[in-house]
Write a protein that binds this DNA or RNA. Structure first.
Lengths: 404, 404
DNA sequence: TCTTGTTTGTTCAGCCATTGAACTTATAGG
DNA sequence: CCTATAAGTTCAATGGCTGAACAAACAAGA
């Protein structure tokens, strides 16, 4: 998502120095829970107050941060003026295409969701072109709603439950899509001139969780119809060679297990996917599976509890492999799993304790998603604002050009 | 291993600018296959010739690079003087503690092995203290040998087949070690004043392979008595939260499989570890298992071929999970696997093709280790020199202090 | 009310690394 | 011997950070 991450093989000129410190200061502003003063930023970042002052000036001029009204604060000495991320300024647009709905949201630099709209639409009954059309309409409304709050959309990211490479969707099994390209800019109405990106839904959800939880490294696993995953390492999304990392749904649980639609056998999805759990629980097909499962589990329904126990065991086996491989301290369960966590957790933790070789020294934690079903949508929007926060200089430069 | 990687939350002063470009230029010198001239470095790095000149001067003064004799080169114009990594200068000491031998080697900044010595010693019959004693003697000889070649040892790293945390070895099953600390500096003779580190053997082997092969991202798997692994992402070793990443030997192949000594069931080691392959092949215990397997396979011995086919299948299942999770393009087989690759590869590639969901668009490559059984030893030594190459400024600073 | 002490934020000279252009050095080719 | 070309060096200019001095804003005590 970030247009071009700073490479360590780049030469460093004076300007890059400023660029780095611009990002450093901005990060302090967005990261601290209390609006910091220039002096506090200086103390925390290691820069001098003089440098911080000029940098803050530049950020204010660019509309990325703002000064707070001088509120009286405790303590002796001249009170500092708090610096906050700009509430009016750039906004990130997140869009989600899922099996039976479309969604759009907008976040500002503080991470607050300033607009959110969901529209039910079954993609399986429509062509990709129709989906893009409907999404463009939603996006138009979002752009308008956001403008009314004095925010300027700075870009958009679309979350898709499938494999994405560059600007094309290789395959999205549950949508029935193959080789679908991003819509052309001229078909996008209000998004026309904005940078637009597509990415995998679970990957973006992981990004959303990263901000919502503050965790530096974790494995995100989302269970819905399919099982998706995302890996965050040291605060950064890990994409792998092609951006396809995190595909835990097709990790093998039992080499001789049931056939999977992916062509393999014994994939995790065959044990812990929605359909597998439903069938094992003896529930009817086509209903509101998640609600039925939660109800059944709450009422102590035997087959349902057994089904969840089995799913948890399979999840635990897959996660153990991942933890052994990545030595990662936390697993975040999202999607339906977030609501089923109470019944999944015992089996998952049992398997982790048995199968992770370092479990006795550093047991991995299992927790539920903080954003729930909005994770991918919010994560997509955050991807846009995050790119600005990571490299404010680039944003300021483009802003200066468009102003001229 | 690198003392402290540059953090993105550090403030940047002018000096860091120089530090960065120092490393950038040095990297160009070590990376290019032909000794580059100052002008070529400037063109390749994006810096100006003026800057490169002053930086090269600084590196020459610090003894990290040297000018080549002005050889006549083709083409019109003033010929450039080639810059090469200093052949005399800092050296890295690699040490390896394995089940039945100790080894030491030294590499210079070019990566060339300048000294290498192996001594047979069965650690299972000796205490850790005795091992350290014997290793210190070997290291002493290495320091002397290296000094005779006008090299100055800059640090040492010990490779151990076990789980390392900080300066202690948590557990090394095949050595029979638990909670063993690094030897005290005063017990180390010629190593007394050098920075010393321990790390996992497979992790260091991965590092060695990274330099020997030039691959940017790969998964290294080494099969000997145990199975170890290391992950290299974008040129950097990935350690995970505690440095324990890469433990692929205890990934579950079959949740109901045979008991493993680690307390779990169905671990990869139970299918593709030396002992498992030997038993499946019907070979006698205690012999030269690897040699027997290679002989048997060459002669078309049925049980041996079957055993390798089964091991390859299990490896393929485990690697498929890893590739699905990490989206990594290359798998490097080391240790015994390197010599057995011809018989393992078909099964591994078959499973990867079946089980990796992105295999049809980007099939993962399987290749043999370039360093063979020396990978861990050389990798350990390289870890030292790599730290210098990654941050020459730090090295120059300590050098300046000790000179004063 | 006035003074003192404390902390914030700004100003400015000094410093440091990079740049770009001019200049010197070294070679090939006519 | 002269010209063209490329490598390497020198040097004034530039941009960004630092440190110290200073102005501004406040609390506490006399």
């Amino acid at each position: 998502m970030p247009p071009r991450p700073p490479r360590r093989d780049d030469p460093v000129r004076q300007r890059s120095l400023r660029d780095h410190n611009l990002a450093l200061v901005l990060r302090h502003v967005t990261a601290s829970n209390r609006p910091p003063s220039r002096a506090e930023i200086a103390a925390a970042s290691g820069l001098t107050r003089a440098t911080v002052s000029t940098i803050v000036d530049e950020l204010i001029a660019g509309g990325l941060v703002a000064e707070l009204e001088p509120v009286s604060r405790s303590g002796v000495g001249r009170p500092g003026t708090g610096i906050v991320p700009a509430g009016t300024g750039p906004a990130g647009l997140g869009m989600e295409v899922n099996v039976d709905y479309l969604a759009v949201c907008a976040v500002d630099l503080t991470g607050a969701v300033r607009h959110r709209q969901v529209r039910h639409l079954d993609q399986r009954e429509h062509s990709p072109a129709q989906t893009w059309q409907a999404l463009a309409e939603l996006a138009d409304q979002a752009v308008a709603a956001v403008a009314a709050q004095r925010l300027t959309p700075a870009g958009g990211v679309i979350a898709v439950p499938g494999l994405v490479e560059g600007d094309t969707i290789r395959i999205a099994p549950n949508l029935g899509w193959q080789q679908v390209a991003l819509p052309r800019p001229e078909d996008l109405g209000g998004l026309r001139d904005l940078p637009l990106d597509v990415a995998n839904e679970a990957t973006l959800a992981a990004l959303g969780e990263r901000h919502a939880t503050g965790l530096r490294s974790f494995l995100y696993v989302s269970g819905e119809i399919g099982i998706g995953g995302g890996i965050v390492l040291d605060g950064e999304l890990f994409g792998g060679s092609h951006g396809w990392a995190g595909e835990i749904g097709h990790v093998t649980i039992d080499p001789q297990g049931p056939d999977c639609h992916c062509g393999s056998r014994g994939c995790l999805e065959q044990y812990a996917g929605e359909e597998a759990i439903r069938a094992a629980a003896g529930l009817r097909a086509g209903g509101a599976v998640l609600a039925d499962l939660v109800d059944g589990a709450r009422q102590g329904d035997g087959p349902v509890l057994d089904a969840l126990e089995h799913a948890g065991t399979a999840l635990g086996v897959a996660l153990s492999g991942a933890v052994n491989l990545l030595d990662i301290g936390t697993v975040v369960l999202g999607g339906h799993y977030a609501e089923l966590i109470d019944w999944l957790r015992p089996a998952i933790e049992r398997e982790l304790a048995r199968r992770v070789i370092t479990a006795r020294w550093a047991p991995a934690k299992v927790r539920a998603s903080a954003l729930g079903s909005d994770a991918a949508l919010v994560g997509a929007a955050r991807a846009v604002t995050q790119a600005i926060l990571d490299d404010p200089a680039r944003f300021l430069a483009t802003r200066a050009v468009s102003a001229a």
